[in-house]
Design a protein around this nucleic acid. Structure first.
Lengths: 152, 152
DNA sequence: CCCGATTCTTAGCTAAGGCTAACTTATACA
DNA sequence: TGTATAAGTTAGCCTTAGCTAAGAATCGGG
């Protein structure tokens, strides 16, 4: 197995970072992936409380398009992680940590969404893509998105 | 529980789509999340073959920063799904489907990366963010990214 | 006030994606 | 050519995130 990188005129320039750097990158992505669902949940819970005054599992299930037991299980995890508080058979509340996280998520979501729309995307597609993208943008990227969206 | 949306002057405009539309959005995101790892693998395998002439599990493990048995297991899944072929204790090859997917991924990756760099991001952060973002951009967004990156 | 409908939880299944420990195969070099 | 080392696999564990089926709690209208 010989390294063709050093001598190659690589037409497509595949990822040229050292394996370790690349591994760190994937570690970041894996970490982000692990938090995505929690972030989606707190964001939605904040929205529901804002809209309806409370966040009920049944509404969470409907909005996410999953079944009730899935929601129960995930809410238990979020409670374990200190993002929400709850009592059996009652609706859900955010802890201070949960509220903070929700605000961060909302902020990122807004910036990504406004950016995509400003770029020329239709609002529906923008909303869909923002949902996926928001968990994977660094602060640096976010800053660039924001200034693009705010530009005259 | 009363709907405050209709009468509300919502300062932050939380997601105002109908629950069903929102559920479809999340279904899209969940679907994307399910394919992310497979896409990362075929993309890396293609890179390794391009760089070294073959893709060995040990190198895949190093680049992803995971252990060998994890790679074995995932490769088995990819083989089951028809994206790669392999024989025990040998390196990995892409099927036609795998090669096609790898090309798609590479294309998306390139466009997102060039876009982020063009936007002003430093190359390392751009690479990291691209890894996360590339799985969540629609064709429409990709087209906009591309024309932004290609603009004079 | 109570009974049916709704909501929520529990139990138990699947599959993915991590891990370690232990085993097998391949490789390379003395 | 034999054998130590490197590479790959297997077995078995954990967690997460889905699901269905079935049971428990809550709520509202008579």
């Amino acid at each position: 197995m010989t390294d063709q990188t050093s001598q190659a005129s690589d037409d497509l320039a595949p990822d040229s970072r050292a394996p370790e750097a690349q591994a760190n990158g994937f570690a970041t992505v894996r970490e982000a992936r692990r938090n995505e669902l929690a972030e989606d949940y707190v964001e939605l819970i904040a929205d529901l409380i804002h809209q309806y005054g409370e966040a009920r599992p049944v509404d969470i299930a409907e909005r996410f398009g999953v079944r009730a037991p899935t929601v129960t299980k995930t809410l238990n995890r979020l409670a374990r992680e200190g993002l929400i508080t709850r009592e059996k058979y009652r609706s859900v509340f955010l802890t201070e940590a949960g509220r903070t996280l929700a605000q961060e998520c909302r902020r990122r979501h807004e910036i990504v969404l406004r950016f995509l729309i400003r770029l020329g995307l239709d609002p529906e597609t923008a909303e869909r893509d923002a949902e996926g993208i928001e968990h994977h943008v660094s602060e640096q990227t976010l800053a660039l998105f924001e200034s693009y969206a705010n530009r005259p």
